[in-house]
Design a protein around this nucleic acid. Sequence first.
DNA 1: CCAGACGTTGTT
DNA 2: GTCTGG
DNA 3: CCAGACGTTGTT
DNA 4: GTCTGG
Length: 226
Amino acid sequence: MCERFSLTAELPELSERYRIGQVTYAYKPRYNIAPTQQVAVIIRGAESRMLEEHRWGLVPFWGKDAVNADSAAVHEKPAYRKLFGKQRCIIPSNGFYVWKTEGKTRRPIRIVMKDRGVFAMAGLYEVWKDSRGGETRTCTVMTTRSNRLVFDYNERMPVILDERDVEMWLDPTMNGEPDRLQSLLRPYAPERMHAYPVSQRVADPLIESEECVEEAAPTRYALLRR
DNA sequence: CCAGACGTTGTT
DNA sequence: GTCTGG
DNA sequence: CCAGACGTTGTT
DNA sequence: GTCTGG
């Protein structure tokens, strides 16, 4: 599961990293991104990769927000099959938050790459057109079972794609190759990742500042349990 | 054919 | 809306 | 995910 | 307790 993350990179770094050819909105780095908010999404346009802004959470008219999509089921669930076939995106991040239960409280933990770089979460997106010609863009983050590092906190984690996987995931010629796409949706290598505790203030979705990513001292509870 | 489901996860 | 189960 | 709210009625 | 908003 992935329901809170950050993307604190500046635009040039992001553009270079993912070879973005077109930016369609006023990008701003973020420290504490929550479901239903607008997030940065990269899709493959006709000419080049595009950076767009989408609402985090698909909104099927019959149901609630779909913030995550189970990668194992995505090629067979009717609600997702079409998106899996041709509405794939990546959702860039440089850290996601998980919660560790310590006694009666839950404390936020940040999961990053050891190199502290930006990484690509696999996603699906949808574009709704309303009667007045307006468009609503939405997206969801694909999840898979957790690797050894994340499993201490949560059974599910976002699907993270390395450079080569991103290329294939966004490639429209893969639209008819669900099996090959499916093979990309696996847990990321735990030895390339790192987890550390962050301030309890991250828990408040309105807190949007650098303290969200700063390492916090372990709690007394965590020390006792060691 | 119609009716009903359709999405995710954690919790113990 | 689309798909599955009966 | 977490934080915070969570009820009712008629009237203009 | 459960639901909504971010």
